[in-house]
Nucleic acid binder design. Structure first.
Lengths: 186, 186
DNA sequence: CCCAGGTGTTAACGGTGCTCACATCTATTC
DNA sequence: GAATAGATGTGAGCACCGTTAACACCTGGG
């Protein structure tokens, strides 16, 4: 019944192998470059095999995005529990750095085509992640809803603008310092 | 040589018809739903015809995004030249409302896959749009670069979060009022 | 008048996501 | 310890997509 450990089923436990390989391909090639055939070949399995574990390509992408939100939640909780001097700023910085170091995964997490009809799992994962965000922020300082939304928008927009290379760095300018400066400017 | 007006070439002037139909399909179906074959059929032309006017599907999308940036520029200049009481807030509101009322076009304008290698036209159009934005902002108030970037990030993030339905409206809450509140909170 | 070339068509190629019938393996049951 | 039921992987193939090539057409300039 339950998958007994260290006894590979048929070829090993796919699904996990698929997800791991998919994450690597995603970060290297982008979402458009993640094809089921390439993915299957990377894991050493036939092209139809992934369909035993994922209903469709979209379902595979959804699973990737869900793990992305889980990692995101973990990162936010970690920095919050380290009780930094300025929790708001520290979490904002973590938010942006997460986006920058998981570029394509972050983009996938907010990909519009995923939340088009169906896909309630994604929505739930996103809500869970932002609930922890809201909870942590609300716990550390009594911020009004509007201010919290404004901070969220600023940090999210900064992430995307940096990700897309819209914000040009000046000569010899440090990305991390710029992030801190922008977050610091209330 | 040069295209003389009001004399339809072969079947009318494609390219313009393609762009207009593509804009409609894009807004209705999203970028993924915009296929060259469907587009060609919508205009009443064969599947290969668009390739006389666009090198590839990506080039077609780029052209759409460029017109998006032009419209965006126009909207920003229009509100700026109306010299409102609070220019910063007025432009921010226009920014967000533009995103909301041109959802898929806005997403396309910032689509990551478009600016991947090549596509200098898109980059130029985006830079032009943001140059007018920067110019207008800098002209009306002496805002420092950091503050300007922070405002841009906030407004851009707010647009995307609203677009993706991440920000939940409370019962009987007005979207436009919420936008104004968030923008107003410095 | 004719002809160079811009415009549209038809047919096809490779590649994709996806499905179906079939093979194979695992885990339970007697 | 076989037999069996169900989960897992395979191979072939479908429909569709973006793209290209060879061909037909129509138009404007010499």
């Amino acid at each position: 019944m339950s998958t007994s450990l260290n006894s590979p089923y048929h070829h090993g436990n796919l699904r996990q192998a698929l997800l791991e390989a998919a994450l690597i391909i995603l970060e290297k090639e982008g979402e458009a470059g993640l094809g089921l055939r390439d993915l299957a070949r990377a894991v050493g399995v036939s092209a139809a095999a992934p369909y035993r574990h994922f209903d469709s390509r979209a379902a595979l992408l959804e699973a990737l995005a869900v793990t992305g939100f889980q990692r995101f939640s973990a990162a936010m909780e970690a920095v919050a529990s380290s009780s930094p001097a300025d929790p708001m700023a520290a979490m904002g910085k973590t938010y942006v750095l997460f986006a920058l170091s998981n570029a394509n995964l972050f983009r996938l997490m907010f990909s519009p085509q995923l939340k088009k009809d169906g896909r309630p799992g994604l929505r739930m994962a996103a809500d869970a992640a932002f609930d922890t965000l809201r909870h942590v922020v609300g716990g550390d300082m009594q911020t009004g809803r509007i201010k919290a939304l404004a901070a969220w928008a600023k940090v999210h927009g900064l992430s995307i603008l940096l990700l897309d290379g819209q914000i040009a760095l000046r000569a010899g300018e440090d990305t991390e310092a710029l992030i801190a400066e922008i977050i610091g400017s209330l």
